[in-house]
Computed example of a mutant assay.
Amino acid sequence: MQENNQTLSHCPACGENLEAQLIHGDSRIFVCPTHRRFGLSGTAIAMINGNDHYREIIGRRLDRDRNIEQERVYTSDDLNAPIS
């Protein structure tokens, strides 16, 4: 699945179609039917689109965090940090 470097069309965790909602500066907010609302920085999007390893990492983070009430914006730091 090839993506534009600036956005995502499918959830990296479950493959569902994403709805892009808002742009906050460099960050994009997405809605997934399974993983609810989440945000990604522009750098994180580029990393996810450029490397399947990062797509897997963000997918695991989305799975882990999907029951958290607060909307989360993930950055490149989240893609490089150990998953707890």
Rank of each mutant, 00 (worst) to 15 (best):
L79D: 02
C32D: 01
A46N: 06
G25S: 13
V31K: 12
T7D: 14
P33N: 10
A13T: 11
R66C: 07
C11Q: 01
I83W: 04
V73S: 11
A20Y: 01
L18S: 05
C11N: 08
A20S: 14
S41M: 08
S76P: 00
H53K: 06
Y74K: 04
C32V: 12
R64V: 12
L18E: 02
E16R: 05
V73Y: 13
E71W: 03
D63H: 06
S41T: 15
Y54M: 06
L40W: 00
R36N: 13
H10Y: 08
G50Q: 02
N4C: 12
C32A: 02
A13C: 13
E56L: 12
M47T: 03
L40M: 13
A81W: 01
C32F: 04
P82R: 10
A81Y: 07
N67D: 12
I68G: 11
R37P: 02
H35M: 01
I68E: 11
R64I: 14
A13I: 02
N5Q: 08
R61N: 00
C14G: 07
H10K: 03
N80K: 14
F30S: 06
A81S: 14
V73H: 07
T75K: 01
R66V: 12
G15C: 09
L8H: 09
G15P: 13
D78K: 05
V31G: 00
T7L: 07
H24R: 08
I83M: 04
S41K: 00
R28Q: 15
R61T: 04
D77A: 14
R66A: 08
E71L: 11
I68H: 08
G59Y: 03
M1H: 11
L18N: 10
Q6L: 11
N51W: 00
I29S: 08
N49K: 08
L79N: 06
F38K: 02
I57F: 04
V73W: 05
D26V: 02
N51D: 15
S41W: 02
D65C: 14
Y54E: 05
S9V: 09
Y54G: 05
S41A: 10
I58L: 12
Q6S: 11
I58D: 00
G39P: 03
H10S: 09
Q2G: 04
I45N: 04
E19R: 04
G42P: 09
D78L: 07
T34H: 04
V73Q: 06
C14W: 00
F30K: 02
A13K: 03
I45Q: 04
I57G: 07
Y74D: 02
I58W: 04
D26T: 06
L62I: 14
I45A: 06
Q2W: 05
P33S: 09
R66L: 09
P82V: 02
S9F: 14
Y54I: 05
R36A: 10
E69Q: 14
G15S: 03
R60Q: 15
R37W: 04
I58Y: 01
T75Q: 10
P82Q: 07
